[in-house]
Amino acid sequence: MSYLLEQVLNGLSYGLVLSLIAAGFAIVFTSTGVLNFAHGSIVLLGAYLVAVLHDSIGFWPAVLVGLAGAALVGVAINAVLVRNLADKKPDTAAILMLGVDIVLLTELTRRIGNQVLTLGAPWGASVVRFGDVSLPTGRVLAAGVTVVAFGALWYLFSRTDLGVGMRAAAADGPTASLMGIRLSRTAATGWALAGVLAAVAGIFLTSFPAPGVAPTVALSAFAAIPAWVLGGFDSVPGAVIGGLLIGLTSALVTGYESDLEPFLGSGFGEVAPYVVMIVVLLVRPSGLLGSKEAVRV
């Protein structure tokens, strides 16, 4: 029983981190219509900044720099590249983002080299025990921070002018600009938010139980893509549910792989998220909470 509980808690806490990334995808998509395939390298960038700076300026200041850096890079990508795109079609922008991803990732890979850079997180490799169940402190913190982050996002989007303006701009940009809402500003805010969420996710993805910053962390963003897609391309709550679902599925399938192997073969844990995504999309083609329009892309 405690084993099941442990895997469930593991899955949920990992899923919450995934949902931070998935929410970043969704926010960028709604605020600028871009499928941001460079999101993975922004996740890596945030963690990388913390890893190289924590020694000289301390962990928490380094976290601030990491969040700000990731947000700034997002804003810059939008301002310099996306806004100046001659052809505003989503597929063109998506391909542009793939290019940005390659450039960023190559540079970060070059800098990281074959090292595994430690983050210097104060929680180290400690674990929290609840009776029989133990969970890494980093994961417990991740869950807490993620819940707070989503609470803040909810407040932003439903209780502030900026958030309501962002939703209006996402729903119908030209009309929103007739209300005096500056689309350039809502777009920049969206990219910045996504950058911050990515960096937060990056920090938790590279601290214990993961060892540190290595280029493969950027691939973790791809694990969040099924979460994003099955939640619905344009829905932040959908991304949260999607992340939890994917995290839980992969933890349970991996945890019970030896029992499932006779039916599913080995290595099913890696494929399970995509299977869940496909099943959800078969039943609900626009995702769990996505709007129908978003899927036409």
Partner: peptide
């Protein structure tokens, strides 16, 4: 809009997923 000139677009173009209150809030953005 900030100078006091506001357009109601053709076809109304309300924000369908936003509540009535949120639509009005967006209108008062400035």
């Amino acid at each position: 809009v900030r100078r006091g000139l506001v357009q109601v677009p053709e076809g109304r173009r309300i924000f369908r997923d936003l509540t009535v209150a949120e639509n009005l809030r967006a209108g008062g953005y400035t």
